[in-house]
Design a protein around this nucleic acid. Sequence first.
RNA 1: CGGCGAUUAGCGCAGCUUGGUAGCGCACUUGGUUUGGGUCCAAGGGGUCGCAGGUUCAAAUCCUGCAUCGCCGACCA
Length: 575
Amino acid sequence: MRTSEYILATLKETPSDAEVVSHQLMLRAGMIRKLASGLYTWLPSGLKVFRKVERIVREEMDKAGAIELLMPVIQPAELWEESGRWEQFGPELLRINDRHGRPFALGPTHEEVITDLVRREINSYKQLPITLYQVSTKVRDEVRPRFGVMRAREFTMKDAYSFHMTDECLEKTYHKMFQAYCNIFDRLGVDYRPVIADSGSIGGNLSHEFHVLAESGEDAIAFSDESDYAANIEKAEALAPTEARPAPSKELNTFDTPEAFTIAELKAKHGVKPHRGVKTLIVYGAPDEDGKRGLVALIVRGDHDLNELKVEKLALVDSPLEMASEEDIVNTIGAKPGSLGPVGLSMPVIVDRSAAIMADFVAGANKDGVHYSGINWDRDVSAYTVEDIRNVVEGDPSPCGKGKILIKRGIEVGHVFQLGTKYSEAMKAGVLGEEGKNQTLTMGCYGIGVSRIVAAAIEQNNDDYGIKWPVAIAPFELAIVPMNMHKSHRIPEIAEKFYADLQNAGIDVLFDDRKERPGVMFNDMELIGIPYTLVIGERNLDENKVELKNRQTGEKLMLDIGSAVETIVNAIKSK
RNA sequence: CGGCGAUUAGCGCAGCUUGGUAGCGCACUUGGUUUGGGUCCAAGGGGUCGCAGGUUCAAAUCCUGCAUCGCCGACCA
């Protein structure tokens, strides 16, 4: 490709609404442009990267025995009603009506459609197991799209679905997919980790997420510093403390706290250390037979955070989890949030394991502007249950039994699930088994965010000058930058020859044939992140040399003109 | 969904307080100059000042409503 016949679309200035580095660089490097909130056009350079990621994903899926197909974005509501997700999915499911007023959804994922297809097409155990996949556009009406294509409303995902007669068979495919994912991320050249995960709204049992590690990641991952344990923080168990609860040594006392309604204020104004107090959070309980929801109190240590996912799974608590309104709290307890505590509460009280071994602690007195000190479990609060309801923090013992927890941030780029029979049962997808009896299929599903990978790779590979692409997914492998080509006759000649020879050798080349100053060209090529730049200038030509620059290392090599093509091809193809 | 903020040329912004000819930098076009790291000079093109309504002789500027975009929050106890 010649720059003169291409849209480089690079920007000197950073658009003001781009927050994270990958979003800024994708705009500046001319990869994407925003159409509306969470909707992006892929410009030529962006699309080239996107296609390279897509290709690696396809190759590895094919290698793992998955078969590609393509399903519609627009899906009839009936299918979603059948699986129960028309109700369950919430406003993220973008719904439309056709001209006849019939309801449809724009597919955020394709479990329903694939299950419907398989129940029609697959009739015998002999056709199983089978893994089908597609690379397609997904639509999710995100509450808050952000970070460019990282959390967009329309994005591209590779989604695969496997169907089996038995759980053992599902497990085998699951491991095969897991390995295929590792191969994919290895080839993409990103630093990633598979982590134990929750299966979320997709449903199912065992599940792993693949995360690209980056500061800007929206997920927190808990690692062990001594083993290869890694889990999404929402899934990492906070082990029960091994130490025993000290005996009470103080009397229960009240003290006035008229201006302290948060843990931070309690610390600032009354010197209460956060780990010596507890937070009391009020949520709605599971509905009773009449559908009425009571309140439930959740107690965690002042310096700990509640884990909503763990709470949601408790039988006493309504799912999805919802914080009680201030009105309901005042009406039931007689005090506002900020002055609540476990003493004298007439509702179920669920205490975190770490809070349950505290003695002589501080909490609100359920009276505005008053706190208790010297609270002790059993003596002052009789009815309560103990559960794991908090997020792990750094330094906690690892749930795997070895080492301590470290917390890092990650961008979720892949997710594999063992779904089980959630969809096949609801949608009656079964086949005849060996004994001639109908048997419900068991399913797995496996997603990779193709567009998100592009952004995640940039988060991990950039510097002050721009993007530093891994060769495998760079928009171009090499840039030819001639110095002042229009002032010379031999430079264009040699540059053209290199352009032709390198292309013939299978290198993806961008030939910067613009009439620009060298600095402008260098800056553009570095911003776009092309891994190698071949600089052709009079200065070196006199010695029969050209210069090869490596974007990753900054290293410059002088090459003899005669052997340069071979050297370059070897360097690039070895990656 | 709640709070805050923004909206003026393709991009980044000023002008608004105190109403009176719509500006700057980058980008773009033309000419010249320069040429191994975003040259310099000159001339030019490009705007329903987000939309609707109101106040006024006069509104980018003041008032009201709406829309869009963004940030933060939804762990506050």
